[in-house]
Design a protein around this nucleic acid. Structure first.
Length: 778
DNA sequence: TTTGCTCTTATTTTT
DNA sequence: TAAGAGCAAA
């Protein structure tokens, strides 16, 4: 019963809670004091600050299990929100095993987006949509924006559709409708047309009966604001609200939650948010750490529970992570304490020659661990940027080491899947113009831009969907005979499929559509190395359709929920970005690429300054805290960025690690190397003798050069004339062909090609492309 | 309409 | 380097 918080001495009524008075139920066993408090404090607002590895998910799931088994609410009365489908799925599983039954009864456990979509479909007409509205994917979105730009005569080169899509996203993340966008904000795009474009875009979506991801939330917010009775219905329904990873929520999600929590005075709302400000790594996509920092103000009297006992990592690892994150200024401040007991291995920092050696080194380490009986599954390589993955993949392939890349493009984002879906969407709904556009000429049918333009023109004039416009046009002389025939046949096919969709199972229908349209044949004929994989994906798609009752149900699933192909069961090392590692843990974690410019990433620093640096540091913190037993950091002295060799300097984060928990190693192949010096600050950033000529480190110098290249006029690098003119690439270098030069790290070599300030040099060790600023005349 | 070539640009990613 | 986009020629 809401209002009566169950406790050991005064349990609420009910068959289960009566047991409760004698001894705590099983699910509370093994929880520490704070965790238990968090589970049992069901009434009123609660903020759980859960450090890495402190059993956050456990608290969340146990809390739900507790609410369910004490009958304080039924599954359908609990709203519990996550950010990813993966997290939602995991929670369902864990709750299921706790309460020992299926979680079918929890329809409101899901991502912000899937729950919003569910709500919107029920009240679609109130936000000018029909309940079968389509959810736009990024491709559709870009295509639509391009059309709008063309209609406004905006040069797509100067104002790329992608950029506008990014702005749209940012606005929607902040909960801004077209009218809310400030002129200053929208003004710069396409000389002040930004705001109008946003409004046009939204209008177009309504015509198409579509919503993009941002709209799912935004329209929900609008619905709640404009229809108090609808909102009240949800207030009555949701007796408890839970939010995972609250530090990742953006403004729109915050507004959404606030509206739903308004059923009661803020101080009585049964809302529980769980998060860790130190793991906020999605600021760049609109997450507001502020939401979590502000929770106590939003919900006065909120109880705050800190989970600081870490059950995951050894004290060395924890010490490294804590020292590092302590360099951040804006944080709530938690102190993690280890529960593991032993200090464990020290955190290894290894300096290597280049990324190739880094991959080799890590490969060896992995094989060594494997010989010691560690499973590959328990190891992961966490990189800052995905281009770093390739080197490892290549190395592991030669070693025959099993690996798996986690993350990357989602299943439904793949071209073949989207194409197939477009066919299905169109069959189930002839008014889906975006789907039509996508596949009219896929596979190629000789229906190019010009034909499509005619179709679109008619559609717009007559104000009808593209299929209808096509039907009209094939009766006229406006199209060339060839195209007319092709279109007539295509329409006939679609009519046929739509007809069949009523009688045969949709999975079977899908197979027929893919065959008869020639889509399968298209990939069979394609000789590209990835086409067999694509065919495989299509099969997978058809297979997964079988699990759904209706085509509509399947389409909803695929656009909101469907993940990348399910985990292969083989034992394999995981390779992933630091971002996608959040929430996971491994015995051994490899953290390569700790170099200035790469990690912290230059762009984060350039674009967001101190805040950017702090977010990068949180990313490093997330990385280290993924490790249970071993964290192995490495850095390369040379790295190839966009095909150019550059010397790198060690990440500043290395200096922020505590000396007593870290052991510095050098593979010996380094020239000059990075010393073993005493104090933390001198250990890594020992200035390279070559760099000492300049004031700034190599990376920054290179960055500056890159900028310089864009601007006309003489370029100087630290006072030295490097290029006379950009338009004069042949003679722009201070060096000449055939000259013997010295690169401090690669040694002597002969210049065999010059392109601007990029030199190709034959060194004793091989041919490399380097920037001329790394070269001295010999 | 399609193809092949040149140019450009280059985090992190969920939904 | 390497992928994707845009543009000119077939």
């Amino acid at each position: 019963m809401p209002g009566t918080a169950p406790s050991f001495d005064r349990p609420a009524a009910g068959p289960i809670t009566s047991q409760f008075s004698r001894r705590p139920p099983d699910y509370l066993e093994g929880l520490n004091e704070e965790q238990r408090d968090a589970v049992l404090s069901t009434e009123g607002p609660l903020l759980v600050l859960a450090g890495a590895g402190t059993g956050k998910t456990r608290v969340l799931t146990t809390r739900i299990a507790h609410i369910l088994s004490t009958r304080m609410a039924r599954g359908a009365e609990i709203l519990s929100v996550t950010f990813t489908n993966k997290a939602a799925r995991e929670m369902k599983e864990r709750i299921g095993s706790l309460v020992g039954s299926s979680v079918e009864g929890m329809p409101w456990l899901g991502t912000f987006h899937s729950i919003s979509a569910r709500i919107l479909r029920r009240h679609a007409e109130l936000v000018d949509l029909r309940s079968d509205f389509t959810i736009l994917d990024t491709d559709d979105q870009i295509r639509l924006i391009k059309q709008l730009l063309a209609a406004e005569n905006i040069d797509e080169k100067r104002w790329p559709a992608r950029q506008f899509a990014g702005m749209l996203d940012a606005w929607k993340n902040r909960g801004l409708l077209p009218r809310d966008v400030s002129e200053a904000d929208a003004g710069f795009f396409a000389n002040g047309k930004g705001k109008k474009l946003y409004a046009d875009y939204q209008a177009r979506l309504k015509v198409l009966n579509a919503a993009d991801f941002g709209d799912l939330l935004l329209e929900c917010i609008r619905l709640f604001r404009e229809q108090p009775d609808v909102l009240a219905e949800y207030h009555r329904r949701f007796r408890y609200m839970l939010v995972d990873e609250y530090q990742d929520s953006n403004v729109a999600q915050y507004l959404w939650l606030r509206l739903l929590a308004q059923g009661k005075p803020a101080s009585e709302a049964n809302i529980c948010v769980v998060g860790d400000d130190d793991q906020s790594i999605y600021g760049w996509r609109g997450a507001e750490v502020d939401n979590i920092l502000r929770f106590e103000k939003d919900f006065p009297g909120a109880k705050v529970i800190k989970l600081e006992r870490n059950y995951r990592s050894t004290s060395n690892i924890l010490s490294a992570a804590s020292h590092l994150i302590a360099h951040n200024e804006s944080r709530l401040g938690k102190t993690l304490q280890t529960d593991v007991g032993e200090r464990g291995e020290t955190v290894a920092v290894t300096s290597v020659w280049d990324s190739e050696e880094e991959a080799r080194q890590i490969g060896e380490d992995i094989e060594q661990l494997q010989r010691n009986g560690e499973a590959l599954d328990s190891m992961a390589i966490l990189v800052r940027a995905s281009f770093q993955m390739r080197e490892f993949e290549e190395r592991f392939i030669t070693l025959g080491l099993n690996y798996r890349v986690v993350g990357g493009p989602r299943f439904y984002e793949r071209r073949e899947i989207r194409d197939a879906l477009a066919y299905l969407r169109l069959v189930s709904n002839f008014t889906d113009d975006l789907a039509f556009e996508r596949i009219v000429n896929v596979p190629k049918r000789g229906l190019g831009d010009t034909t499509v333009k005619v179709l679109m023109g008619t559609a717009r004039h007559q104000n009808v969907p593209l299929t209808t416009a096509t039907r009209m046009l094939i009766e006229t002389e406006d199209l060339k005979p060839k195209q007319r025939t092709t279109l007539r046949e295509l329409l006939a096919q679609f009519d046929d499929w739509a007809e069949r969709s009523r009688s045969i199972p949709h999975a079977e229908l899908a197979e027929q559509i893919l065959d008869e349209s020639g889509y399968t044949a298209m990939w069979q004929a394609d000789k590209a190395p990835d086409s067999p994989g694509r065919l495989e994906n299509l099969k997978e798609l058809v297979r997964s359709m079988e699990e759904f009752e209706t085509l509509g149900g399947f389409l909803e699933h695929i656009s909101l929920v469907m993940d990348r192909d399910s985990a292969d069961s083989d034992d394999a090392v995981s390779i992933m970005t630091l971002h996608s590692a959040k929430g996971l843990e491994f015995n051994t974690v490899f953290l390569p690429g700790w170099e200035e410019g790469l990690f912290p990433h230059q762009r984060a620093l350039d674009e967001s300054g101190r805040a950017g640096l702090e977010e990068e540091r949180r990313l490093a913190y997330v990385g280290i805290t993924r490790a249970r037993k071993r964290a192995k950091i490495s850095l390369a002295q040379n790295r190839r960025i966009h095909g150019l060799w550059q010397s790198a300097i060690p990440s500043r984060f290395l200096d922020e690690l505590p000396a007593d928990a870290v052991e510095v190693k050098d593979t010996g192949s380094s020239y000059g190397g990075y010393g073993y010096g005493g104090g933390a600050s001198s250990r890594f950033n020992q200035v390279d003798p070559f760099d000492s000529v300049y004031e700034t480190p190599g990376w920054q110098r290179a960055q500056r050069q890159r900028e310089n290249r864009k601007s006309p006029g003489p370029m100087t690098i630290d006072g030295e004339l490097v290029a006379k003119s950009v338009s004069d690439p042949g003679t722009s270098s201070a060096f000449s062909l055939g000259e013997t030069v010295l690169h401090l790290k690669f040694g002597h070599g002969e210049i065999i090609n010059i392109e601007g300030n990029k030199l190709t040099i034959q060194f004793e060790t091989g041919r490399k492309k380097v920037l001329d600023s790394f070269i001295r005349k010999s």
